[in-house]
Amino acid sequence: MATENELQAMRRALDAARATARALPNPRVGCVLLDAQGREIAVGAHEGAGRPHAEVVALAAALEAGVEVRGGTAVVTLEPCDHTGRTGPCTRALVEAGIVRVVHGQSDPDPAAAGGAGTLVAAGLDVEGGVLADEATQLNVEWTHAVTRGRPFVTWKYAATLDGLSAAPDGSSKWITSAVARRDVQAFRADVDAIVAGTGAVLADDPRLSVRDENDLPLPYEQQPLRVVVGETQIPSYYRVFDRVAPTLLIQQRDPEAVLARLTEEGVRHVWLEGGPRLAGAFWNAGLIDRVIGYIAPSMLGSGRAALEGEATTLADMRPIDITDLARVGPDIRIIGTPGRAPREEMP
C-alpha cells in the first residue's frame, strides 16, 4: 500500500504532468523520485515525442543535483514503458539507476509499450500500480482513447447564437462569439494535435486554423497542430490555411471514418473538429464525436445555418449530451459535454 509520502509524490507528479505543454502524440507523464528515506529528491515530466521520458528527466535532475537515487522510489503517473522507440525503455533506466520500488498510477494501455511493471518485478523491484489511478487516467483521456480504440479522439467545437445558428443566411459567421471566447478556444486548440475543418467553412471564412497567443501571434511552428482540410472542393493557394505558420494536410473526401483512418496513419491522437455544419453532421451521424464544446452567444439571428446538419427526422432521434462543465466566458456561455448513446428519457 502506498505511503503518505508516495501519495504526496504522486500528486506532485500529476501537477508536473499537467504543467507541460501538449505532449501528443505521446501521453503526459510526470515522475517524482524519493530517496531511501522517502524524501523527494527530483521531479521530471515528459514534453513530447522524441524528448526524454519523465523518469529519465527526473533521474537526470537527481544526477545534476548530486543526490543519491540508489535504493529510492520512482513515483510515476503512467506505468513505465518497456519498449524502445525514439528513446530507450524507462524500465531499463530505472533498474540501472538502482531504484528499488516503483509506484505508478495508470497502467499503460498501449500494447506497444505495456508490460513495464512485469519487467520491473522480474528485475527484483517492488511495484505498486493503481495509485490515484483515476486522476492519472484523466490526464490522458484522449491519448488512451486513441491507443485503445485505434482512432483519434474527436472534440467538436462550435459557436452559435441562442437560437442555435452558426452562420447567417449569406454564409457569414465571423464573429458570433466574443473575443474573450475566441481566446478561450486557443487554450483548447493548443492541447490537440490536429485541427480539422471542411472546405466549405475554409472558403467562407478563410480561417487560419492555427494556435495563437494572447497577443494574437502564432505559436512557434513546432508547437502548432496539424491543419487538416476535408472535402473535394479546391481551396485557392492564397488562403491562410496554406501559410507557413503550421503544417497543412488536404484530405479530398468527406467520409469521417476514412478521414480518421488517414489521421491515424499520421499519428494523430486528438482531433479538434471545427468549422462546417455539414462535416460536423457527418461525424455526428457516424457516432464519431467524443466530446462537444459549444460557445453560445447571447444573441439571435432568426434565420441562417444551424450549427449541425444531422439526419434526425423526429424527436425520437434526439441524442442527449452529458454536460461535464458549464461556464461563463466573457458574455458567452461555454458548455462541455459527452454525447450520450441512449435516447433521452420521456418526461412524465
Rank of each mutant, 00 (worst) to 15 (best):
Ile195His: 08
Leu217Cys: 12
Ala97Lys: 06
Thr119Ser: 15
Asn26Ala: 05
Ala194Phe: 05
Trp175Met: 10
Val268Pro: 02
Thr84Pro: 01
Asp184Ile: 03
Ala54Trp: 06
Arg227Glu: 05
Asn140Trp: 00
Val131Lys: 01
Thr314Trp: 14
Arg305Trp: 13
Arg254Val: 05
Gln138Trp: 02
Gln253Leu: 15
Gly337Tyr: 04
Gln253Gly: 15
Ala179Ser: 15
Gly129Pro: 15
Leu63His: 13
Met1Cys: 07
Trp272Glu: 12
Thr3Phe: 09
Glu79Ser: 04
Trp272Asn: 11
Gly85Ile: 01
Arg51Ala: 14
Ala246Gln: 12
Thr324Gly: 14
Gly150Asp: 11
Ser178Asp: 08
Thr155Glu: 13
Leu125Val: 04
Gly330Ile: 08
His83Glu: 05
Thr137Arg: 13
Asp35Val: 00
Ala160Arg: 10
Arg244His: 15
Thr338Glu: 12
Val95Glu: 10
Asp255Ile: 06
Asp82Tyr: 10
Val268Arg: 00
Ala16Cys: 07
Ile251Val: 14
Leu249Pro: 06
Asp325Ile: 06
Gly340Trp: 07
Gly276Met: 09
Ala62Ser: 12
Ala60Ile: 09
Ala181Gln: 05
Tyr221Met: 07
Ala297Asp: 08
Asp317Ser: 12
Lys157Glu: 12
Thr87Glu: 15
Thr87Ile: 13
Leu7Asn: 08
Gln224Thr: 07
Val67Ala: 09
Glu222Cys: 08
Gly71Glu: 05
Ala246Ile: 10
Arg227Asp: 05
Ala307Gln: 13
Val228Pro: 02
Gly38His: 02
Asp332Met: 14
Pro339Val: 10
Ala167Arg: 01
Pro256Phe: 01
Val141Lys: 00
Pro80Thr: 01
Ile321Phe: 08
Pro52Glu: 15
Arg341Tyr: 04
